[in-house]
């Protein structure tokens, strides 16, 4: 698989703010890549630079081996679905979808066939004559998607595609986007602030913070083997401890082959909890019942509180003595 979109040392500043700071990233052909980060991390600016809506201050953007750094948006083989959908209010659904095709010079039967095809891909066949204001939020999202798909872009850029939808619709659309990608074989780059959304849809996740990419890896890897503390914290709860001389002093346990000064990270659900004494013993201080699982806050003898997520109902009560353990591969070593 070759890189379809290649971002080389791209930076973008807005006044005193560096929105994107020396970012390099390869997006492979037919890949679903998620740009994940909190608001203001630069993910949308990066997406807009790929679309051509912003020009980088430095660095290069190549699309299909062609230098597109300075190319205007209308000359790029990419299409973007805007967070607000940006449907043309004075045009019907059909006219919206036909807009980009007419721009390519398509007319007559070929044009209407392509419009039908795009609307069919998002299951909106019957609503062609409607105006955007006559549609629900979910339907508008589909039209915006169809308008991009109709152009058969090499890369589809989606800016927070699910943010404006309610929870139920979001889950369904998430599945549909994944299915659509598999069927059409288009490269997807999605910007999102929701880590579960990124994990569910993407082949690879690029985690961003303060204009930089912290880690690019598969969902499982960024979750289980985070590159640093920021990535580790971004994906749900995690226990983090400082390591010193092959030990975690806060827990009083030995960690073989750990470089001094680095951090140890263990996800709460990887920790097993059992009655009685063990290598790491403690007392249950708090119990939070979540329905499908229960969170225990266990204070170990060295004083530190460990967060443990165990499946099922409440098995241990507050004040009960328990022992904790985890398999060696559950512990990730992070730079300080």
């Amino acid at each position: 698989m070759s890189a379809l979109v290649r971002i080389e040392a791209v930076s973008k500043r807005f006044g005193a703010v560096t929105a994107v700071d020396d970012v390099s990233l390869d997006v492979r052909e037919n890949e679903f890549l998620a740009l994940l980060g909190a608001s203001g991390c630069g993910k949308t600016t990066l997406l807009r630079m790929i679309a051509g809506l912003e020009t980088p201050d430095s660095g290069k953007i190549l699309i299909g081996d062609e230098d597109m750094t300075a190319a205007p948006p209308y000359a790029r083989p990419v299409n973007m679905m805007f967070q607000s959908y940006a449907l043309f209010p004075h045009m019907s659904v059909e006219e919206n979808v036909a807009f980009g095709l007419k721009q390519d010079g398509l007319r007559g039967a070929e044009l209407s066939a392509r419009v039908r095809e795009a609307l069919a891909a998002v299951e909106m066949e019957g609503l062609g004559p409607r105006k955007p204001h006559q549609l629900s939020g979910g339907q508008r999202q589909r039209v915006a998607l169809a308008r991009c798909l109709a152009k058969r872009p090499r890369v589809l850029l989606l800016d927070e595609p699910l943010a404006a939808l309610d929870k139920h619709l979001r889950e369904r659309t998430q599945l549909e986007l994944t299915a659509l990608r598999a069927r059409l074989g288009i490269t997807f780059i999605v910007v999102t602030h929701d880590q579960s959304e990124a994990m569910a849809m993407a082949d690879r996740v690029a985690v961003m913070e303060a204009g930089r990419i912290l880690q690019v890896a598969g969902p499982r890897e960024v979750y289980e083997r985070p590159a640093n503390q920021a990535v580790a914290r971004f994906f749900g709860d995690i226990n983090l401890w400082r390591m010193e001389g092959g030990r975690i002093p806060e827990l009083g346990v030995a960690v073989p082959m750990a470089p001094a000064g680095s951090m140890a990270a263990v996800r709460p659900e990887r920790i097993s909890i059992a009655r009685g004494n063990g290598a790491l013993s403690g007392v249950v201080r708090d119990v939070v019942y979540l329905g499908t699982a229960t969170t225990y806050f266990v204070q170990v003898s060295a004083g530190e509180t460990v967060r443990v997520l165990a499946p099922g109902g409440v098995m241990f009560q507050r004040g009960e003595g328990v022992s904790l353990s985890w398999p060696p591969e559950a512990l990730a070593v992070l730079p300080p």
């Binding site: 809506l53 205007p72 948006p73 209308y74 805007f82 940006a86 043309f88 390519d104």
Partner: peptide, 18 residues
């Protein structure tokens, strides 16, 4: 007018005058 509309038009292949 929402400025995103002009961006969308450009993204769909329209030159500024179009």
């Amino acid at each position: 007018q929402d400025p995103a509309l002009l961006e969308a038009a450009a993204d769909l292949g329209a030159r500024p005058w179009q």
